[in-house]
Amino acid sequence: MAESLMDIKRKIASTKKTGQITQAMQMVSGAKLSQIEKRAKKYQIYSDKVRQIVTHLAAGQLLELANAAESDTDSGDKSQVISVASLLQKRPVKKTGYLVITSDRGLVGSYNSTVLKAMMQMIKDDHESPDDYVMMAIGGVGAYEYRGVSDIPTFNEVREIVKTAVTMFDNGVFDELYVCYNHHVNTLTSAFRAEKMLPISDLDVSEVADTNVEYLIEPDLDSVLESVLPQYAESLIFGAIMDAKTAEHAASTTAMRSATDNANDLISHLSTQYNRARQAAITTEITEIVGGAAALE
């Protein structure tokens, strides 16, 4: 019985240490979540403004770009058509690109498994052959193509893979690009999202139809679009990375809170078990003493 009591005490001490660790990790994840939520809100303001400007600039140019694509292709000058028209115009889809965002670490609950299961099901439903799609991954759990994104990412950090994705689309490696990740809903909830980023199709001309904003453009509209549209496409992908990181920290906070609660529940259960075992040992000792005293009489 004494050995059993020691085992229970050892389990209680071990569980308390584990609970302290998970509680500390919960606090760290909560702090990171608070930071990235603030940054994401600020980035959203920037993203909305850029989208408004791009929509305004491109509003009257879609038809012209389509006509320019034909005339420039005939003349052999394809540089501008590739960088501008290809980002806006749909083309026959021979191959689809997927940029999958996972985490570099575990201890984030079902965050990674949700993304990977949804991705595998999507590929199974939409493609018959591996030749129909191209996979790129951010995060060590998804693959080792690109990892090491910080907890509060900056654009300079992910510039390489973002530019690579846009350039691959530009060069015809794939004909459409989906960014697949967990979208942050709130601290307790996230939802898998496969968002089509390329070609750019979310520009709604009606949003700027009633505005009287005018821009001074130098040197010309086509040159500005040639520079701004790739940046806008890159900002969309970076926004998805920010959203995914926010969901990751939220999932980590929730997972560590659950682990801490489970540790506390286990400690409570072990404490009750310890008290019962100790009481049983005391009762046994009293019985033996009484029995021994009775035998002496």
Rank of each mutant, 00 (worst) to 15 (best):
D222N: 10
A143R: 13
L225E: 03
Y181G: 07
T187L: 04
F174T: 07
M135W: 09
S190Q: 14
N212I: 10
Y215V: 07
S110P: 10
V166L: 06
G139N: 06
V158T: 15
L177Y: 01
I217T: 11
I200L: 15
D202A: 02
S103L: 05
T102L: 01
V213T: 13
S201K: 03
E176G: 08
L221G: 08
V141D: 07
R193V: 09
V134T: 10
Y144K: 15
E160T: 15
K124F: 12
D175F: 03
I217E: 02
M168L: 13
V141H: 06
L107M: 14
Q121D: 12
I123G: 00
Q231S: 11
A137P: 00
S150A: 06
D132Y: 05
R193Y: 11
A137H: 10
S129V: 02
G109E: 09
S129F: 06
V158Y: 06
Y133A: 03
F174M: 09
L216T: 14
D204T: 04
A165C: 14
T164E: 10
Y215L: 08
M135P: 02
L198W: 00
G172H: 06
Y232H: 08
R147T: 15
Y133D: 02
D204N: 09
V213F: 06
M120V: 09
V185L: 14
E145M: 13
M168N: 11
N112L: 03
V228W: 05
M122G: 00
E176C: 14
I101Y: 04
T167P: 00
V166E: 01
D170G: 08
L116G: 00
S103C: 11
R159G: 00
T211C: 03
V115M: 02
T187E: 13
R105F: 15
N182V: 07
Q231F: 08
A118M: 03
V224N: 02
K196G: 03
S129E: 11
D104V: 13
D126N: 15
E157I: 06
D132C: 09
S206H: 11
L221E: 06
D220W: 01
F155R: 09
Y178P: 01
N171W: 00
M168W: 07
Y98F: 06
D104R: 12
G172S: 12
S110Y: 04
G148Q: 07
A209V: 12
Y133R: 02
A233P: 04
L216G: 09
V141C: 03
D170L: 13
D175L: 07
Q121G: 02
L198P: 01
S206N: 14
V205P: 04
V166Y: 00
